[in-house]
Amino acid sequence: MIQTGGQQHEQLSSTDQKIQEFIQAFGSTDAAISAIKHFSTKPKAPSIYANNPVIMQVKDITRTYKIHRQKVEALRGVSLEVHTGEFVALTGASGSGKSTLLQLIGGLDQPTSGSITINGTDIQRLRDKKLSEFRNQTIGFVFQFFYLQPFLSLRTNVEVPGMFRHVPRKNRSPRAKELLERVGLSEYVDRLPKELSGGQIQRAAIARALLNEPKILLADEPTGNLDKRNSEEVIKLFQTIRKELGTTVIIVTHNPEIAAQADREIQLSDGVIV
C-alpha cells in the first residue's frame, strides 16, 4: 500500500510539476486558465467583417506607469488590427491591461512606445485640440458607470458631444431624440437620468456615444453594472448598431458569455495578447 501510495505520489508530483510549468509559462494561474478557456472554445468562423479595410492598427505599443516610484508595465508590446465594422471583445483578468489598451485607442492616454493609427491618423502626433476633436468625432465612449449628467434631461445629455463640436442645437436636438428612440427610450427623452433603470441609462449613454456618428465605439465594461437581462439587451444593441451603422465596436469585458458574442475575442494577460 505504501509502495502503491508512493507510486501514486510520484505520478501526482509529476503531473503537478507539469501544471506548475504550464502556469509559469503563462505567468499566472489566471492567465493559464484563460488560455485553457481560449483554446478550449471552438474557433469561430472568420467573420464577414474580416475582409473589410483595417480601421485601426496598433503596433507594438507599451505603456509604463510610475506608481509610488515603482515602474508598472501595463502593456508590454501589443499589436493588433481591427477591421471596419468588427465587433471585438477585449478580455483578460483585472490588471491585464485591457482598459489601458482601450484608453490608448480612445486617445485618452499616450503609449510609452509604439504607434496607434486610426482611420489613417497616427493619433500620437495629435496635440490636445486635435486629439479632442478626434475623440469627439471618431470615437464614441461608453462607460461602466454610465456618467450621465444627473441634472440634465436625457436629450440634453445625449447632446453633450454635439456641444463640444459646436453643432447648432436645431441640428443636434432632433438627432438626440432620434437616437434615444432608436435605443428604445422614446418615452424618456425629457426625463432626468434618476428616473430610469441602469439598463435604460446605459442605453442613453450609448445614444450619447453615437451622436457625432463615430467610426469606433469603445465600451469599457458596459455591462459591468447591469443584470443579465439588461446586459444582453445592451450587447444586442451594440450588434444592431454595428449592423445598421457599420460602426466598429470594441468592448472591454470579463464576461465570457459576452465575449463569446463578439466576432473576435482578444485576450490580454500581463500586458500582452495571449
Binding site: G106, L108, D128, K129, S132, E133, R135, N136, Q137, F141, F143, Y147, Q149, V160, P161, F164, R165, R208, N212
Partner: peptide, 16 residues
C-alpha cells in the same frame, strides 16, 4: 474631476 474626464472623453478641449 471624473465628470471633467468624461467630458474630455466626449471630446471637450481644455478650453471648453
Amino acid at each position: 474631476r471624473r465628470e471633467t474626464a468624461v467630458f474630455r472623453a466626449l471630446g471637450a478641449k481644455r478650453r471648453d
